[in-house]
Design a binder for these strands. Structure first.
Lengths: 215, 215
DNA sequence: CCTACCGATCGGTAGG
DNA sequence: CCTACCGATCGGTAGG
């Protein structure tokens, strides 16, 4: 439905290689472009942050970026994909830890608060620039995002079975918990707010119900 | 600090009149422009939604808008200010209702979930286009937003005193509760999700601790 | 409220 | 990886 350039290349995931085997230098160079793009988008947003800006930081001309990236939208996709992959890895090690359901859910909440409050403007890019993805890239992102959500839903479900949280739709509960923590990027000011205290409050708010010996 | 046009007019709040007394027709016309701008920004975002778009919907030329509005940024401010005022009114009647602390906090949560899930794309404008405000307008918005936050903080505090929520920083708790509910605009799909069920889940998640007779 | 238009920005391409 | 450039968009202004 959405207008899409009818390119002659056959079938291919978003952002696959231009060369059959990208050289190491090529990949390194592209990584640094992705780094820079993230910084530019953090500071100026996706719309206002231009490819000229990105190129300038790297001492290049805009046209040169097109050797590494096929479009601005693809560059945004690279920024996203890399970050999501890293976040998923961290989250998976976290949920596979050998702990009680309650401890695991608490860890999930704490983790998300700490990560977001550590660099709120980073999440301005991830949470607010989503609509700018081309439909092609968007699907890819959604898949990984759903995995992220499922990890939270599982955390909630385990906890519910252990009797800490009562009968709530796990998907709704997961979205609510994620919302509670993610929203942090909208208001958290590292120079004024205390991430630890906030994490405590978040855990308290959701799990405070059961057995808390508040000190 | 931020670059600002050095205009010769003396002191004046953002968005004040051009005429000493704007005529009724003038105000009406401007309201319809604000209506339209909201629709355009909802559909295309602030950056991509052009003044040409807004004018076209109204059967006008872009230049004509400048009779009613001094800049695109001011138009965004008008959109915000009107919505915030309405939201504040609703919230204030809600919190002044004669109910127990627990009922009041529950009402706050329910209200926010219902409002946001009713029209998620509306909140895409309010929550994600904030950075586009001129510094001059931003201050005005912040003031009202803080009032909004305070109403939530009060709700949490009252509840804490009644013993439902334990010792949590009221401001953090308020932000967390607001985040939990506001985040809805990022994922809620009216054709798939159930706002009532979500509201239940949200109330449950925060207040489920005390006396719930889950049916 | 309109016609006409400016100045600037920007993504992307040609062609090397 | 660069120079040069196109085509389009856009906010805003002049002047009526």
């Amino acid at each position: 439905m959405t207008a899409k350039a009818p390119d002659q290349s056959p079938r291919r995931g978003p952002g696959r290689p231009r060369h059959e085997t990208p050289s190491a230098e090529f990949l390194e160079r592209r990584e640094s472009i992705i780094d820079t793009a993230l910084e530019v988008f953090k500071q100026r947003g996706y719309d206002s942050g231009s490819l000229d800006d990105v190129a300038a930081v790297l001492g290049l001309r805009k046209a040169s970026l097109y050797y590494y990236v096929r479009s601005k939208a693809e560059l945004l996709y690279f920024v996203f994909d890399r970050a999501i992959n890293r976040a998923l890895e961290r989250l998976e090690t976290l949920t596979s830890a050998d702990e009680s359901p309650r401890q695991r859910l608490e860890a999930l909440i704490r983790h998300q608060v700490m990560v977001v409050s550590d660099d709120p403007s980073l999440f301005t890019v991830f949470f607010d620039q989503r609509p700018h993805h081309d439909g092609e890239y968007e699907a890819e992102i959604q898949k990984k995002e759903r995995r992220y959500l499922r990890l939270y839903a599982q955390g909630v479900t385990d906890d519910a079975e252990a009797g800490v949280l009562t009968n709530i739709d796990p998907r709704y509960a997961a979205q609510l918990v994620l919302g509670m923590t993610n929203w942090t990027y909208k208001w958290f000011d590292p120079s004024r707010d205390d991430a630890e205290a906030l994490a405590d409050a978040a855990v308290q708010l959701v799990l405070g119900s059961s057995d808390v010996d508040g000190d």
